[in-house]
Simulated assay, not measured.
Amino acid sequence: MPWSVAMMVVLIVMIVTIGRVSREKYRTGRTQSRLSETGADPRAYDEIRQLKERIAVLERVITDHHGRSDLERQIEELRDR
């Protein structure tokens, strides 16, 4: 095999390898930035879950037409959390 062909094969392999490594680095960076945006901390997930529950209760309070005592009970449940 001529020297130039061997060198071309080596260069192609290097280019492909560098491309794959760069792509994986980019993916990892994007994943880590997404995790930091969402706060990969379990406490953050718990807080989000609690806020969603509160929003659901508030939506029910606003859209449902219950008596005053039921409304006060739901508000007190929200305060206790």
Score class of each variant (00 low, 15 high):
Gly29Gln: 11
Asp64Ala: 07
Ala56Ile: 14
Val16Gln: 04
Ile75Gly: 02
Ala44Gly: 05
Glu76Pro: 01
Val9Gln: 07
Met14Val: 09
Ala6Gly: 04
Met1Pro: 08
Ala44Tyr: 07
Asp80His: 15
Tyr45Ile: 09
Val57Gln: 00
Ile12Ala: 09
Ile18Gln: 12
Ile18Pro: 00
Val9Thr: 07
Glu59Pro: 00
Glu72Leu: 13
Ser22Asp: 07
Lys52Asp: 05
Asp80Gln: 15
Leu78Met: 15
Met7Arg: 10
Pro2Phe: 12
Gln50Pro: 01
Ala44Cys: 05
Leu11Ser: 05
His66Tyr: 09
Ile15Leu: 12
Lys52Ala: 14
Val57Tyr: 01
Lys52Trp: 05
Gln32Glu: 10
Gln50Glu: 14
Leu58Asp: 02
Ser36Met: 12
Val57Lys: 01
Thr38Tyr: 11
His65Gln: 10
Glu47Gln: 14
Asp41Thr: 06
Tyr45Val: 03
Ser22Ala: 12
Glu47Ala: 08
Ile12Cys: 04
Ile75Asp: 04
Ile75His: 01
Arg60Thr: 05
Thr31Ile: 11
Asp64Gly: 02
Ala56Asp: 14
Leu35His: 06
Ile62Val: 11
Ala6Glu: 12
Val13Thr: 08
Ile18Ala: 05
Arg79Gly: 11
Val61Ser: 00
Glu77Gln: 10
Tyr26Ile: 06
Glu77Ile: 09
Val57Arg: 00
Ile62Leu: 12
His65Glu: 14
Arg34Tyr: 11
Val5Arg: 11
Gly19Asn: 02
Asp80Tyr: 08
Arg73Leu: 14
Arg34Glu: 12
Val5Asp: 14
Glu72Ile: 08
Ser4Gly: 03
Leu71Asn: 00
Leu78Gly: 01
Ile55Thr: 09
Ser22Glu: 13
Leu51Ile: 03
Gly19Ile: 00
Val9Pro: 00
Val21Gly: 02
Val16His: 04
Ala56Trp: 09
Asp80Ala: 08
Val21Trp: 02
Trp3Thr: 07
Leu51Trp: 02
Ile15Glu: 15
Gly29Lys: 04
Gly39Ile: 01
Met1Gln: 09
Met14Pro: 00
Pro42Glu: 13
Glu77Asn: 13
Val21Phe: 06
Pro2Arg: 10
Trp3Ala: 04
